Computed example of a mutant assay.
Amino acid sequence: MSATRIDADVIRRLPKAVLHDHLDGGLRPATVVELAREVGHTLPTTDPDELAAWYYEAANSGDLVRYIATFEHTLAVMQTREGLLRTAEEYVLDLAADGVVYGEVRYAPELNTNGGLTMREVVETVQEGLAAGMAKAAAAGTPVRVGTLLCGMRMFDRVQEAAELAVAYRDAGVVGFDIAGAEDGFPPADHLAAFELLRRESVPFTIHAGEAHGLPSIHQALQVCGAQRIGHGVRITEDIVDGKLGRLASWVRDRRIALEMCPTSNLQTGAATSIAEHPVTALKDLGFRVTLNTDNRLVSGTTMTREMTLLVEQAGWTAEDLRTVTVNALKSAFIPFDERRALIEDVVLPGYAAAL
């Protein structure tokens, strides 16, 4: 494979892996409209195309808190068993249509209990929907493996409960844990007991850090809480001056700690200024284990194909760069080593060779 520029049609055919993608941020607009009608929830518009545009425009505020506020309408239609089953199944099918061969989907079960479901029932229902989607994708000849990350909301008080569910369902499709929500003012160390539980039970976890808050957030996530990956982490660049890495940046690079980078989302929340100048490129060139992700496909109006295409067109990425971040993601996926290696050697590398 040569280090050459490639177009969107080729990119669409490439096998992809995504580690940072929120279930409640990736619904189909038409599904939101239909489910909202069924549950009596009022939307900004009932036209699917207009709703997609509303999400994208509302999220382009440059502020993480306002970005998160757009989830009101997706969460409103994910409070019933039927809503969860449908959105989970469609999530998998949409990944498969985008060429994704491995994905990790994250959500906070506590946010889906307003309709009377317990957190345990939410987890079991989502797993059922994901399994149905994977079966349909495989039958269609586009198999995709999807693992689940359960999230605790860092500004609320049910993080420990979510961590306990991650332990309980780790042999039933849940592959790891995360904390999400407003980062600034809610440090990860506030939930140290949950992370200590996960470490004792050998459940891997990532932590949203270095997006709305800087180096102290990343330091706490890694050195106090023990995260194996960092969600976003764009502000690790604050520990790099003229190409010289500080102690924390060196730790991240040298220990091969994956950074789950989400370029379009970072532009929307103000964590980055442009695709061309997004830190993912500089960090890639410095040898960090960067991965490429969508974060919220509806809210950010994006797909893995789009994220890759933007970096090719605006940041000069090559096919080799795209292959590197895909392999990086699989190396850091929260599934067993032999399964990661098989995806790399039997799916991704041959898929790149065939597409190029």
Rank of each mutant, 00 (worst) to 15 (best):
V101H: 12
A162V: 06
T118R: 07
G185Q: 03
L149K: 02
A138S: 15
F186Y: 15
F177V: 12
V123Y: 06
V174P: 10
Y107N: 10
A96I: 00
G173P: 01
E196K: 14
E124R: 15
E124C: 12
V146Y: 02
G181W: 09
A131V: 06
F177I: 08
F186T: 04
G141W: 00
A131K: 03
T125E: 03
G133V: 00
E183I: 04
R170K: 15
E110Q: 15
V92C: 06
A140W: 03
D94S: 12
L111V: 09
A131Q: 13
G116K: 02
E183Y: 04
A137G: 00
M119I: 11
R120S: 15
A180D: 00
P187N: 11
R120F: 12
A135W: 01
Q127F: 07
H191E: 07
G115A: 09
G99P: 05
G147W: 12
V100I: 11
V105G: 08
A139P: 08
G116M: 02
A132S: 11
A194T: 02
E196P: 14
P109G: 06
Y169A: 11
R120D: 15
G181D: 05
T113I: 14
D190P: 01
A96E: 01
L95N: 08
A189L: 13
E161S: 12
L165E: 01
F156L: 14
R106S: 08
A137P: 09
V175T: 06
D98W: 00
A139G: 03
F195T: 07
L93F: 10
V100K: 01
T113V: 11
G99I: 01
L93I: 05
M134E: 00
D178V: 02
A193T: 11
R199A: 06
P187Y: 14
N114R: 15
G133Y: 06
P188T: 13
G185F: 03
I179S: 07
A193R: 13
Q127D: 02
G152A: 08
P188M: 07
T125A: 11
L197V: 06
Y91W: 04
A166H: 03
A97C: 09
V175K: 04
A189N: 14
D178I: 00
V167G: 05
G133Q: 02
V146Q: 01
G152F: 04
N112K: 12
M155Q: 14
G116F: 06
R199L: 11
G152S: 10
A135L: 07
E196M: 08
E110V: 15
G133I: 01
D98Q: 08
A182F: 13
V92S: 03
P188F: 04
A132N: 08
E124A: 14
C151V: 13
V175Q: 05
R154Q: 02
T118D: 09
L93A: 07
R145F: 14
G129S: 03
A96P: 00
Q127M: 13
D178H: 10
A166F: 03
Y107I: 07
C151E: 05
R199Y: 04
